[in-house]
């Protein structure tokens, strides 16, 4: 097993709905969720769904990913700035290198991340795609 099924289950709302956290004291937003505010140190945080739109800052084409992604190589990864200013690293769906320019507008969708072999679970989560 290359993925820990119970850990995936625990995090599924983060993975599929992009639920992060917002600090109730200073308003800072975080993704993935944090338990202590990185801005003001407060432990008073609430769940916050992240915006699904953003801009691409940088991308890489990865030819040798870790074993659970090996059969999908090459995979494309992007560093994305969401419209609330939060940065996220995500796989890029339907990647077309021509369109992977810094500043390109991107939008989150849900895609398959990996399958744990033939009989194992199928793992789904956010991926971003370049808007036409």
């Amino acid at each position: 097993m290359n993925v820990i099924p119970i850990a995936y289950w625990r995090n599924r709302k983060v993975y599929t709905r992009m639920i992060g956290t917002k600090c109730k004291d200073c308003g800072a937003e975080f993704f993935p969720p944090v338990r202590v505010c990185k801005k003001c140190g407060s432990r008073n945080l609430e769940e916050k769904e992240m915006p699904k739109n953003g801009s691409l800052l940088a991308y890489t084409k990865l030819s040798e990913p870790a074993q659970e992604f090996k059969e999908y190589a090459p995979i494309y990864l992007g560093l994305i700035r969401l419209d609330n200013g939060v940065n996220v690293i995500s796989m890029i769906a339907d990647a077309d290198e021509e369109k992977l320019k810094a500043g390109a507008r991107v939008q989150a969708t849900v895609r398959k991340w990996t399958e744990d072999g033939k009989g194992g679970l199928v793992y789904y989560g956010y991926k971003f795609r370049v808007l036409q």
Partner: peptide, 14 residues
């Protein structure tokens, strides 16, 4: 992070 970086396919080199 296992939960949030490895999970999305990002290797160390990437």
């Amino acid at each position: 992070s296992s939960d949030f970086t490895q999970a999305v396919g990002a290797s160390f080199i990437s």
